[in-house]
Design a protein around this nucleic acid. Sequence first.
DNA 1: GTAAATGATACCATTTTAGTATCATTTATA
DNA 2: TATAAATGATACTAAAATGGTATCATTTAC
Lengths: 121, 121
Amino acid sequence: MKALRYIASQNNKIITVSELVKKLRIPHSFLRKILQILNKKRILKSYKGQGGGFMLALKPDEIFLADLIRIFHGPFKFNDCLFVKKKCPEVNSCILKRKIDNIEQRVIAELKSITLESLLQ
Amino acid sequence: MKALRYIASQNNKIITVSELVKKLRIPHSFLRKILQILNKKRILKSYKGQGGGFMLALKPDEIFLADLIRIFHGPFKFNDCLFVKKKCPEVNSCILKRKIDNIEQRVIAELKSITLESLLQ
DNA sequence: GTAAATGATACCATTTTAGTATCATTTATA
DNA sequence: TATAAATGATACTAAAATGGTATCATTTAC
């Protein structure tokens, strides 16, 4: 998020990992890995070779926190009812599951409403 | 939760782990460990010796999902801002943290509203 | 005294998380 | 055209969390 905020703040300039490392004090290889993932997922565009680096592939108001979480943590499932590695036989009738599903949906809705734009300044 | 629901449904009878194992098909040692924790945390009362077992220590409408989650997963902190094992220097000014804290508070409020009582039937 | 119960605690395997390291490829430019 | 500066791909590692198991000690009803 810090890297994305920095990149967004430099509107449409190509930013290198080295620049981010200096500004944000994030370990170089770690940050590279993250930016590579964001590139594959089309949040960033990358440019190889000398003079290369990264830029946003989308406008800041098109980048949603919900999507970033999905990219790094996988799909939301607070509620993946397993027991001893088998699916719980009561998944369909379980009242608890219904209540948690409900909360999950609301959280996801909130996370969709947080854009990179909304985190600048 | 399954065990608590079963125990609650047998109002004020002492229930043994063996009975729960038969009804709920949860491994014996695993269930014992869980019930021991619930006993220590005063959600259950335990009775040792022959004829012993477990009972609710509270009424079903005094047992909150939020507390059970805290017991087994530790305190809620979706938002424990660490980086390279150090606290992030921006914790206080971070807009993202503020937004997530907000969501967290609402989720906790919801989890507090779910009681064992509300999961019976 | 013994069987039936919980208490305490140590142990283990697997998965996830957080991060490092290295070699390959691309490209601007001197 | 060689080289330096950038990303791409990918393999590796250490530590922590997760999901359990196993065992010995203690208590208590009968």
